[in-house]
Amino acid sequence: MKVDKKTLEKRIERQSKQWNKAGTDRHFLSQLGLLGTLGLLFVIPLVAGAYLGSWLDARLEGFSTSWTVSLIIVGVFVGAFNVYFYIRDTDGEPHDR
């Protein structure tokens, strides 16, 4: 993906303004909210994978913990992708609702 010089300069300027604003505008509660959101985006797939894997292991005999471990690992990757895409799409800024 090629990015021309003007687009890159505009993007850098916009991000620089956001960083400067973030240093003075952020309050403790907004940072706490962002941290909570990121935590939930990571933990929910992890816990869902653990529960689903445990359920599958109980239903299918001969597999002691293989589904549980496998789906926990999948949950970690899904959670990491969730956090990455959330930060990428919002630039780390919480939305005003």
Rank of each mutant, 00 (worst) to 15 (best):
G79K: 00
K6L: 10
K6A: 15
D4T: 00
Y84K: 07
R11L: 15
L52Q: 02
A80I: 09
L60K: 00
E61H: 09
G53W: 01
G79Y: 10
Y86R: 00
T68F: 09
Y86K: 04
H27F: 07
V83D: 12
A58Q: 13
T65Y: 12
Q15K: 13
P45G: 03
F81Y: 12
K10N: 15
G62V: 04
A58W: 01
Y51V: 15
A48V: 13
S30W: 12
L35P: 01
L52S: 04
F77R: 00
G36S: 14
L71Y: 01
T37D: 12
V43G: 03
L56W: 04
Y86D: 14
V43Y: 08
G62W: 03
R11G: 04
F28Q: 06
W19H: 07
L35K: 06
V69A: 13
K2Q: 09
Y86G: 02
H27R: 10
G49I: 04
G33M: 12
T65K: 02
T65L: 10
W19T: 10
F81E: 11
L52C: 02
K5Y: 04
S66W: 06
V78T: 09
T68S: 11
E9I: 03
F42L: 14
F81C: 02
Q31K: 10
L41S: 06
S66N: 08
W67Y: 15
L56I: 14
E61Y: 01
T7L: 06
L60I: 14
V47D: 08
S66T: 11
Y86C: 10
Y51T: 11
K21R: 09
F42R: 00
V78G: 04
K2I: 05
V3A: 06
P45I: 00
Q15A: 11
I73G: 02
R26M: 14
G49Q: 02
V78F: 10
A48D: 03
A50K: 00
T65W: 12
V74I: 09
Q31Y: 08
A80D: 10
S16V: 05
N82M: 06
G75M: 02
L38D: 09
Y86N: 11
I73S: 05
E61P: 07
V69D: 12
